[in-house]
Design a protein around this nucleic acid. Structure first.
Lengths: 144, 144
DNA sequence: CTAGTTGCAAAGAGTTTGCATGGCG
DNA sequence: CGCCATGCAAACTCTTTGCAACTAG
């Protein structure tokens, strides 16, 4: 097995991720590093994220926007155990840890023989804020 | 509202999608068109897929691999009312109409104030066939 | 010293856009 | 005829790769 060196770049990136509460793209990280005056090459960021992911330190998720992969720091894979709700209006990502979802997984496993990959799944819809907002101005139009 | 013309390109692309049982990427379509000797430009394929999707004729899904967006034909709107389970192994799309899901929607609405858009949501995981298949050859490795 | 790591720049893959032309209704 | 759709090529974004220089252990 490959040994991991503890380099400055690696720890900077990891710190950044630890201090971020939501998911970030590689580009976000690049931008942040840039605004912090830290210079780490694009390639290194991608390679590091990749490594951190395969070490299980980060979770990689694809939120079907045009944004590319998102990464998020998770203490021992925590995020792989809950679902994500993504508001299609405002883009907010809600982490949903709730026993009901566990039930749902079980149900789908038993009744439909399907093993859900919660980490990969993003449930789309509208968050509270955006639902309220919509009701105000959509008097009578079907759907976009 | 924009009117949709029925062009040759549009119907060719739609036919292709109708006759495909799993998801395809824009590139797949381009390749297929090419091997059929039909020439439709890249831009048109992308624009058409986009339009078909917003008309609700296609379902767009992102299978977080490096592959880009995937599209799949679904009979007009029929599918906006139930969830979809997508096997990340074999590509099978399972249409899941089940009261449990309705319960789940309600739960998420009440407890989390989030309105799920079932038509937009794809739940990823592994279907029965592929789960069985995996167990055969993964004697003892943690997870990918 | 050795093997993993970094930077740079170039290359790829997927997708989008501007603009002139073509085609449906 | 008017307006949407198409083609082409250039532009873009995200990500990967080759390779020489570098550094942690």
């Amino acid at each position: 097995m490959k040994q991991e060196y503890s380099t400055k770049q690696r720890s900077v990136i990891l710190e950044l991720l630890k201090s971020t509460s939501t998911h970030v793209t590689a580009t976000d990280i690049l931008r942040q590093l840039d605004s912090l005056g830290i210079k780490i090459s694009t390639a290194t960021v991608y390679r590091t994220l990749d490594k951190l992911e395969s070490e299980g330190i980060l979770k990689k998720m694809t939120l079907g926007d045009g944004l590319g992969a998102c990464y998020q720091y998770t203490k021992n894979g925590e995020c792989s155990q809950h679902f994500h709700l993504k508001c299609v209006e405002c883009g907010e990502l809600i982490h949903l840890s709730c026993e009901f979802l566990a039930e749902m997984e079980e149900h789908i496993l038993k009744e439909h023989s399907f093993v859900i990959s919660a980490g990969r799944t993003v449930i789309y819809g509208k968050c509270a804020k955006c639902t309220g907002r919509e009701e105000k101005d959509s008097i009578c139009h079907s759907h976009n």
